[in-house]
Nucleic acid binder design. Structure first.
Lengths: 159, 159
DNA sequence: AAAAATAATTGGAGTTTCAAAGTATTTTCA
DNA sequence: TGAAAATACTTTGAAACTCCAATTATTTTT
C-alpha cells in the first residue's frame, strides 16, 4: 500500500494554527475529566463516582490484584484505597478476598457488575478514538501519533 | 509559502497506528491533570492546589469578575466558589471587594501574587505547546489541529 | 524465638463538593 | 410607594476523598 499526500498552506493559515492549537489544548486540558465523568455516569452507572471509575479501571479485568499494587497504580496511599474499596464492595462492583498464600495480602477483583462497568467506561474511550480516527486518512494518523508521542514524552519528563 | 509532503505506509504500519493512537490517548487522559498539577506546584507555588489554579485561571488577568460568572465558568455552585475564594484570599492570590454599583455583587480579581501564579501556569501550557509544535512541520500541525478539533467536537456532543 | 519488615485497616483531620437555608440588596408592579 | 419577588452571595450540614500516623495481623530475618 502506498499513499501520497500534498498539503498547501498560506502564511495566514500558519499563523493561525499555533494559536488554534494552543486554544484547543487548553480547553481539552481543562474539561477532559469533567466531561468524561459526565459521559460515563449515565443510566445504571449513575451512582458511580469518577473515583470509582478510576479504581475499577486500575483493577482491570485480568484477575485479582493486591491492594498495594492498585494503590501504586492510582498514586494513592493504601489507606485511601481501603476506603474506596469499601465503597465499591458495598456497591457490588468489587470483590475482596484475603490471599491464602500470604494472609496479610488482600486481593481485589471485579464482580460481573464491575466488569460491565469497566467495559462501559472503555466504550467511551473507544468511541472517542473511533470518532477521531475515522476523520483521518492513514498518513494523517501517522502524524497524529507522532504529535501525541511528543506530548506523552513531554509529560514523562515533567513527572 | 508552499509545502509538499509524501508519506509511505506499509500495511503493518497501518494496523499498529490505531492501537498506538488508542493507547496514547488513554494514557494522556488518565494522567493529564495529575501531571499538570505536579508541574505547576513547584517552588513558591507549592501551596497552590490544582483547584486554586483553575480558579485563578477562570478569574484571569482582565480585571474583576463577579462570583456568579466565575462559578459558571468553572461549572460549580457559588457556594463552592465562596469556599475556594476564601482560601485564595487567605493565601493572598485573590482580592475580594463588594461592588459599589450593586451591593449584592462581590467582585474578585487577582492580586500581584495571583497574576504571577496565572503566568506561571500559563507558561506550563505554552512550554507544552512549544515542545509539541517545534517537532512538527506545518502540514503536520494542520493534521494535529484537525484531530484536536474532532476531539473537542466529540466532547461538545457529550456535554 | 525475638525483632524487623510487610500488607492492610482504622482513626483523625483537612479539603472539596453540593443542596438547601439564610442574609442583604435590588427590582418589579399593583 | 411599599410589599413581594428576584438576585447575589454566604453559611450550614452532610457526603466523598485525601493524607498521615497508629494499629493489627502476618511473614521474614537474624
Amino acid at each position: 500500500m502506498l499513499q501520497m499526500k500534498m498539503i498547501y498552506l498560506t502564511e495566514e493559515n500558519i499563523v493561525n494554527i499555533n494559536s488554534a492549537l494552543n486554544e484547543l489544548l487548553v480547553v481539552l486540558f481543562r474539561d477532559i475529566n469533567e466531561i468524561e465523568e459526565k459521559a460515563v455516569r449515565t443510566g445504571q452507572y449513575k451512582n458511580m463516582t469518577a473515583n470509582d471509575m478510576h479504581v475499577i479501571e486500575a483493577i482491570g479485568i485480568n484477575g485479582a490484584k493486591n491492594m498495594s499494587a492498585v494503590a501504586k497504580a492510582l498514586n494513592v496511599t493504601t489507606g485511601t484505597l481501603t476506603i474506596a474499596i469499601n465503597s465499591l464492595v458495598k456497591k457490588n462492583y468489587v470483590e475482596r478476598v484475603r490471599s491464602e498464600e500470604d494472609r496479610r495480602v488482600v486481593l481485589v477483583s471485579l464482580t460481573p457488575k464491575g466488569r460491565k462497568a469497566f467495559y462501559h467506561h472503555k466504550k467511551f474511550h473507544d468511541d472517542m478514538i473511533d470518532q477521531i480516527v475515522e476523520q483521518l486518512d492513514e498518513p494523517e494518523k501517522a502524524v497524529l501519533e507522532k504529535a501525541l508521542t511528543t506530548l506523552a514524552e513531554f509529560f514523562k519528563n515533567k513527572k
